[in-house]
């Protein structure tokens, strides 16, 4: 090594930033660039179809013929269509009864799973099964269970001597309606149970101990501790559940196709029926658009559920 080698000079000065580097340090630009992919995807696959659907609802488009703007004609027509009103009724009924069923059974299951049970994790995994099976598969299974001739339920009842004849599950209106609701409850319980279980596990055990010392009975611990503490998550899970149930399509379409005699059409199945096989794209879109007010209502429900949480437990917002 020669002694003349210059020692490296370091002035502690930051090197000057290039133009591009400065641009990326500019917050508005950075935010715009980062949002672009997500916004692009949402615009393409969400906003465009939604906009197109709403536009179609105000036209008389059919398959193969671009329609013209007809204003509210589709809706006026639907307002006088008993099949449409039947679908509205059954959508609300289906959502209401199935949600009550899912939450009653799901909450009960969550409370059970929150206890110290042997093989707890295995049980939880089993509970999730109905949720992970593809809907169409489980719908086909239910189709068999409800089959007029080969129904396993009918078979068991007859074998046990409780009935003489097969049960009519899906070939008359009301039994078909109830049968679909039962299938939907079966499918929806895991989502509710696992979500509520997660909520239950965030409740500190010492609250229950404190309540125990305060003299609370089992019911009172549920009523005054578990339920109010679970309410925020309950509101959110219920919102999602209502939205999923109201827009349900697969179960009904795979089991009854809306029959018998259109008695089990939900708005989603009716919209598809009219729009695609029926070819009346405008009318189908109008039916789909008529679901929006119901869904907005469900979202508001969630909003108020969240607002309540802030004031109970969240940080800030005093």
């Amino acid at each position: 090594m020669s002694a003349t080698t210059a020692a490296p000079v370091w002035t502690k000065m930051r090197p000057k930033q290039g133009a591009l580097s400065r641009l990326f340090d500019w917050k508005p630009f950075l935010a715009f660039i980062c949002l672009l992919p997500a916004a692009g995807l949402l615009m393409t696959f969400l906003t465009y179809p939604l906009g197109l659907g709403i536009y179609l609802a105000f036209t008389d488009t059919t398959i193969g013929r671009p329609g013209i703007w007809v204003g509210l004609e589709n809706f006026i027509w639907l307002a006088e269509d008993p099949i449409f009103w039947n679908a509205v009724f059954y959508s609300v009924f289906y959502t209401g009864v199935a949600t009550i069923g899912k939450f009653a059974l799901g909450l009960w299951l969550a409370l059970l799973l929150n206890q110290h049970l042997p093989m707890k994790s295995l049980l939880r995994a089993i509970i999730l099964l109905p949720w992970i099976v593809p809907t169409v598969l489980s719908a086909i299974a239910f189709w068999w269970i409800y089959d007029p001739q080969f129904s396993i339920i009918s078979y068991l009842f007859i074998e046990m001597g409780l009935r003489e004849t097969n049960i009519d599950f899906i070939n008359t209106a009301w039994p078909a309606r109830w049968s679909l609701i039962a299938a939907n409850i079966w499918r929806g319980i895991p989502f509710v149970a696992i979500s509520l279980l997660a909520g239950l596990q965030t409740i500190s055990p010492s609250l229950y101990e404190a309540a125990l010392l305060d003299g609370a009975s089992g019911w009172q611990r549920f009523r005054y501790i578990t339920f109010p503490m679970l309410l925020p998550i309950l509101a959110i899970v219920m919102t999602f559940s209502i939205i999923f149930t109201f827009t349900d399509f697969q179960l009904v379409y795979a089991i009854t196709r809306g029959g018998p005699v259109n008695s089990t059409h939900l708005l989603a199945t009716l919209a598809f029926q009219r729009g695609i096989p029926g070819g009346q794209l405008g009318e189908g879109a109008a039916i789909a658009v008529s679901m929006i007010p119901f869904l907005v209502f469900a979202t508001l429900f969630s909003y108020f559920g969240l607002a309540r949480r802030k004031w109970q437990q969240g940080e800030g917002n005093d």
Partner: peptide
């Protein structure tokens, strides 16, 4: 007929 104060206080947050 006892009362207990817990380490984390166990106050009912709601």
């Amino acid at each position: 007929d006892i009362a207990m104060v817990f380490q984390n206080y166990a106050l009912y947050p709601h």
